[in-house]
Simulated assay, not measured.
Amino acid sequence: MSCKARILFVDDDIRVLAALRRSLHPQAARWEMEFQSSPEAAVETYRTWKPQVVVTDMKMPGMNGLQMVMAMRRIGDTARYIVLTGTADLRTAIDAINQAEIFRFFTKPCPSFLLVEGIEAALATPDPMPVPTADTFADTALDKLPVAILVVDADARVLFMNRLGGAFSAAGDGIIIGARKVCRAATPVETSHLHALIVSAIQTGDDGVMRLSRSDASPLSVAVTALEGGGSTPKAALYISDPDNHPIPNANEVMRLLELTHAEAKLAHAMARGLSLDEAAVEGGITVGTARGYLKQIFAKTGKARQAELVRLILSLPVALPNGSASKTK
Rank of each mutant, 00 (worst) to 15 (best):
Leu257Gly: 02
Ala308Arg: 04
Leu24Pro: 11
His269Asp: 05
Ile119Ala: 05
Arg157Glu: 07
Thr233Pro: 03
Pro219Asp: 01
Leu115Phe: 07
Cys183Phe: 10
Ala19Asp: 11
Ala167Val: 15
Thr78Leu: 11
Asp173Ser: 12
Asn245Arg: 08
Val189Glu: 10
Ser23Arg: 14
His269Asn: 12
Met255Pro: 11
Ser215Lys: 09
Ile102Trp: 02
Ala29Tyr: 09
Lys59Glu: 14
Lys330His: 12
Arg47Trp: 03
Leu197Ser: 09
Asp153Val: 05
Thr56Glu: 02
Val209Leu: 09
Leu321Met: 13
Arg214Val: 09
Phe113Ile: 12
Gly166Cys: 08
Phe105Gln: 00
Gly118Cys: 07
Asp77Pro: 09
Thr140Arg: 07
Lys330Phe: 12
Ser2Cys: 11
Leu194Phe: 03
Lys328Gln: 12
Ile149Asn: 05
Ala280Asp: 00
Gln52Leu: 03
Ala121Val: 02
Asp173Arg: 05
Val288Phe: 01
Ala291Gly: 05
Thr204Lys: 09
Arg80His: 08
Ala272Thr: 02
Leu66Pro: 13
Ala79Asp: 01
Asp11Gln: 05
Leu275Met: 10
Arg6Val: 09
Ile82Gly: 06
Val222Trp: 02
Ala71Ile: 11
His262Asp: 15
Ile198Gly: 08
Phe103Met: 08
Val151Ser: 10
Ala272Phe: 01
Gln307Leu: 08
Met72Arg: 01
Asp173Ala: 07
Val54Asn: 03
Gly274Gln: 00
Glu117Pro: 07
Phe105Arg: 04
Leu275Lys: 03
Ala18His: 14
Ala138Leu: 13
Arg73Pro: 11
Ala291Val: 03
Asp127Gly: 02
Asp153Lys: 00
Ile202Thr: 12
Leu212Ala: 06
Arg184Asp: 01
Arg30Trp: 08
Val224Gly: 08
Ala93Asp: 04
Glu32Arg: 04
Lys328Glu: 10
Phe113Ala: 12
Asp77Glu: 14
Asp143Asn: 14
Asp11Ser: 06
Arg91Pro: 05
Leu220Ala: 07
Val152Leu: 07
Ser213Tyr: 00
Leu145Met: 14
Arg273Pro: 05
Asp153Tyr: 02
Gln203Arg: 13
Thr48Asn: 06
Leu159Ile: 07
Met60Glu: 00
